[in-house]
Design a binder for these strands. Structure first.
Lengths: 151, 151
DNA sequence: ATAAACCCTGAAGCTTACTATAGGGTCAAG
DNA sequence: CTTGACCCTATAGTAAGCTTCAGGGTTTAT
């Protein structure tokens, strides 16, 4: 079933509807993610239902953590579905899930280190001369232990 | 007790000991985090025990998630302990903890969205024409629901 | 008819934490 | 005495995802 194109949206209208800025939309275009279906006589971008749907896809993917570069690849899969397998698509989400898990694990580590610091501190109104937080950040630090910290 | 300064380190030595690059060290200096205690006759940076300790503080704080800008503030607290309270320091870590918690929560949301997508997909060898992942990213999307997603 | 609110392009600027490059001085070994 | 490993400064480039600016047309309301 082919839906009839009721009317086109101008960039400002689409941006408002999507809750993003006009500039972002143009930026997405410059990055090859989405372009207007056509232009009006005066050169204004005109977006059809199809573009609106595509923008939905983009924002949805963005929301669940894909970068614009990755979304561009996803859009390629989307467009040429028949040339790709479900496996391929699933591998993509799988990799992303592992990536996110890694980020979470890193943050959880940071958080627990911070929480121990935080809880050891009296938080009192006296001067920080003997503040345990500062002391811990300071003191028992050997450089060797640090290197492996960053991803 | 005042420790005697045994000898100074040159920038390459300190960098090697800390497991960071010489350029990073100079960058930290340019950002006002740490500078050499003095210079040798030929202009080489010379770092004393005090600087080494300070760098330890910096890397430690970095490891638990503080940005360089934040570390600069922490160094201010550290230096003028007597003009600040434990409360102040503790507030700082508290805020950072909440920030990290927020990031974790966002990532967890992303992950669970991704996992439902991922699990719904057959992952089979057939073409992605009916791939549930692509369909879900595509279809039931209304712009209104998106806006509140980003921090 | 004129001002506000749109639209266009192209280029530069922002943030963070560096890395790299250009151009040049210093120092120890062979 | 030259090669290589250091050190210095200053400037530019990187990634990501925009935002802002400069300079200029268009459309809509008053």
């Amino acid at each position: 079933m082919v839906a009839m194109q009721t009317h086109y949206l101008k960039i400002g209208q689409l941006a408002a509807r999507a809750g993003i800025s006009v500039e972002s939309l143009r930026y997405y275009e410059s990055e090859g993610l989405i372009s207007a279906n056509c232009r009006s006589e005066n050169g204004y971008r005109l977006y059809s239902d199809e573009s609106i749907q595509k923008l939905g896809f983009i924002l949805h993917a963005k929301k669940i953590g894909f970068s614009l570069k990755e979304i561009k690849r996803l859009l390629g899969l989307r467009l040429n579905r028949d040339q790709h397998t479900c496996e391929e698509v699933k591998d993509y989400t799988g990799a992303k899930i592992r990536e996110i898990e890694q980020k979470i694990a890193d943050l959880v580590k940071m958080k627990s280190a911070l929480v121990s610091l935080h809880e050891a501190c009296c938080g009192g109104n006296e001067t920080a001369d003997n503040c345990s937080i500062l002391q811990t950040l300071e003191a028992p630090f050997t450089f060797e232990k640090i290197e492996s910290g960053d991803s």
